[in-house]
């Protein structure tokens, strides 16, 4: 386990299941049982129809880079040591999430590139979903 010195998420009632499954290597998104819409980020209501009838849905964890930036300057601890790739990845289910693209040279990242989820353990409770080039 590499040392995680970046910000950590808060686990609360809305997100406990998400982080429990992330620890087991599954990326969950949400789907509404009333209107069948997917949504990202996880929350306590369906943001489309405002129903509470939302269910967790395992994403395939595959997607494409919708856009990205190689960031050279960020004073936040853990991000202040050099370039990293901040990206919006569009999952196969059609929702886009912020993430980092890892396990490749930042110069090789491009829009439309196929990526898949990988989890980095930050603490015994928290594994953070990141994306790497699809195998």
């Amino acid at each position: 386990m590499t040392t995680w010195n970046k910000p950590l998420p808060t686990i609360n009632g809305e997100t406990k299941t998400f982080w429990d499954m992330a620890r087991r290597g599954t990326l969950l998104i949400q789907k509404c049982d009333s209107c069948n819409e997917f949504q990202w980020y996880p929350r306590g209501i369906c943001s489309n129809c405002w129903s509470s009838d939302i269910k967790w849905f395992p994403s395939t964890g595959r997607g494409t880079v919708w856009t990205y930036t190689v960031t050279n300057q960020n004073r936040t601890q853990g991000f202040d040591t050099g370039p990293y790739v901040l990206a919006l990845v569009e999952l196969e289910e059609g929702v886009r999430m912020f993430t980092n693209i890892v396990e490749c040279d930042p110069k090789d990242v491009s829009i439309g590139m196929s990526v898949e989820v990988t989890f980095q353990q930050a603490t015994p409770q928290i594994s953070v979903p990141l994306f790497k080039p699809a195998s």
Binding site: P7, P9, P42, T67, T69, Q73
Partner: peptide, 22 residues
């Protein structure tokens, strides 16, 4: 929470980074 802190902050979002992606 849940956003932005739990699903954005941990990826190193900056204001300039967000505009840069656009």
């Amino acid at each position: 929470d849940p956003s932005p802190d739990s699903f954005e902050e941990l990826y190193g979002l900056t204001t300039v980074g967000l505009y840069a992606m656009i």
